[in-house]
Design a protein around this nucleic acid. Structure first.
Lengths: 349, 349
DNA sequence: ATGAAAGCGCTAACAG
DNA sequence: CTGTTAGCGCTTTCAT
């Protein structure tokens, strides 16, 4: 019942033509062994019968599968969504198949996904790690297994796998410097877990800008957590509970900034007047948001493409490719927050 | 060099244990044939060696692949992103693998993707069609091929494949009725291609509400196009060029509404004061947008889950499942637009 | 309870 | 140029 028309196989065509299935296979692939006449006959029949090779059988035979595994923490996420889109587009052009698995910010699930993909014989792996990932063991296994691996966005450096990221540290410094120039002095940071690359690098960039200008943020104004809107909301609540607010907050991601915005609104703290806000990241919707948030725009598509291109080079064993980290330059997107320092805020320490 | 440790096979384990690979296979799968002692030995060795069955080989043998194909027009899209997320989550729970392909709103690419997925022997297909899809032939092929097929969101009814959608028509009627009650009488519609289910149904619901109340919209105020922000922008530009504006526009999607918003802004038409706006769909960001748009919230996750669940039933041949259409009820999300009719707009026809 | 044989569809190696 | 032989790793008869 299922699979009504059993699909045509090489053997079927061989029988019809009275030749061997090997010859058919060779003819189809333009092997030099085969005579032009036979080749044409085979091609014609294949077209007529609508022959499509069985990729499963091909994969079982071949040493490569033209398949690459993609593991992401979630997909309903502005940056990732665009990066994934770019990866799919690029892979399609290169005639590679993508098998994506979603780790749902769960390190254990991430691990099983990676194992599954390995057992599926993917030619390479593209990974953006979860915010919970601590143990690099599974990735070391991948490397030991000699399967090319490229991290992107949320990366684990130092494992011997290439890392393609935004210029996290430099971008954060750029943004905070800009705020300093505008006159801000009392900074807060609602940051991400320091075990996660983007959390760490962005905090580092934040500190760098401040220390150059001899500014030390109030320790109470530095909080760490996850990267979602909920995390931003939570951190902002804590900040409010503590009593004192900085002049301006640097949020580790755009969703975190939105969480801060929501929480501020509920507590009738007006942004940017009473408290100003900038963040790493942006969104397609930013122009419609009130206030639109000044932040760092990340070249998501470019990162996706680069990551895939780099992985393919690794897979193909290109000479001119070395394992290494690439930080794609970022820019400031000037919007309605962080225009200039508005009040003296002498109530602050 | 590549694949340093060749992975362990059934044969490897059989050799080690001095039994046949068939027995190992059976033991692993808990076949009743195998004695408890042997079974334990096999299990122990498998654990020790970290045996993982080769899914490619399994698929070549088995008549099902536990794989389902997913074809979507794009992924950087709020509704789809959430639906896809839900599909992945649900599939993971059911231990099915998803192979997603992105048609990029290109009917030809969509067709080749479907063919590729068929040749990959997916157990079933989950599809949301492109805005260009006109010819249902490829889908008829799928059905003729006896591969279970479920459409979701953007569907093609009447082909004999189940369709899981939002209650497009009813939702549109609900929304427009609400506007009528608030006092609006001069309606415009920036709609989607009538060859696409959501375009057609939402327009139908719009008309239904109006005709019940004996209102006829001005023909100039009805425009059709694609479903993206750009399309909304374009249509709004045309509307402005034409000279007369309706009191309120019903946009076919949230992105289209944003495009309208952007265009209105550039032309210094204030929304909702001068021109009001509602739409089918919403977004996570809506609360932050100014003005936040009153619209229909679609149960994206639910639709994704339902579509997958329905497909699995079809695949499993459940008795209590019939091919049929499901329209998931929707709700109005009341926001800052369409609060009440503000001006008499006697300048209109 | 266990295993030998056969085959899924394809490709690579080696003959003729 | 064309075909035969083998085998990828697994599962499903069918004997033993």
């Amino acid at each position: 019942m299922k699979q009504s028309k059993k699909s045509v196989t090489l053997q079927d065509m061989a029988d019809r033509l009275g030749i061997s299935k090997v010859s058919v296979s060779k003819a189809l692939r333009g092997h030099t062994d085969i005579g032009e006449t036979t080749r044409q006959k085979v091609l014609a029949l294949a077209a007529e019968l609508g022959y499509r090779p069985n990729p499963i059988a091909q994969k079982l035979t071949a040493k490569h599968t033209r398949t690459i595994g993609l593991v992401v923490p979630k997909i309903a996420h502005h940056f990732l969504t665009r990066a994934i889109d770019a990866i799919y587009r690029a892979a399609n052009e290169e005639n590679y198949e993508i098998i994506m698995m979603v780790s749902e910010e769960d390190a254990a699930l991430e691990k099983t996904h990676v194992q599954t993909l390995l057992s599926m014989r993917v030619d390479g792996l593209l990974i953006s790690v979860t915010e919970q990932t601590r143990d690099p063991e599974i990735f070391q296994q991948v490397i030991a297994h000699n399967t090319p691996l490229v991290f992107f966005d949320r990366v684990i450096p130092g494992l011997g796998a290439s890392c393609i990221t935004s210029a996290d540290e430099a971008g954060a410094t750029l943004l905070v410097n800009c705020a300093i120039e505008k006159g801000y002095r009392h900074f807060g940071h609602i940051g991400g877990y320091q075990s996660v690359s983007i959390g760490k690098q962005r905090y580092k960039g934040f500190n760098k800008a401040l220390s150059i200008h001899n500014i030390s943020p109030h320790p109470d104004h530095i909080l760490f957590g996850g990267f979602s809107r909920r995390d931003g909301y939570k951190a902002m609540s804590e900040l409010i509970k503590q009593g004192s607010l900085p002049e301006i907050i640097f949020a580790v991601t755009y969703p975190v900034a939105l969480g801060i915005l929501a929480c501020a609104r509920e507590n009738e703290i007006s942004i940017p007047e009473e408290l100003d806000l900038v963040c790493f990241g942006s969104s397609d919707y930013n122009d419609f948001i009130s206030p639109s948030i000044t932040g760092i725009t990340q070249p998501a598509a470019e990162i996706g493409e680069l990551a895939l291109a780099h992985l393919l080079k690794l897979i193909r064993g290109d000479e001119d490719v070395s394992i290494g980290d690439i930080a794609v330059p970022v820019q400031i997107n000037h919007a309605e927050t962080c225009i200039h320092k508005t009040s003296s805020r002498s109530d602050l320490d």
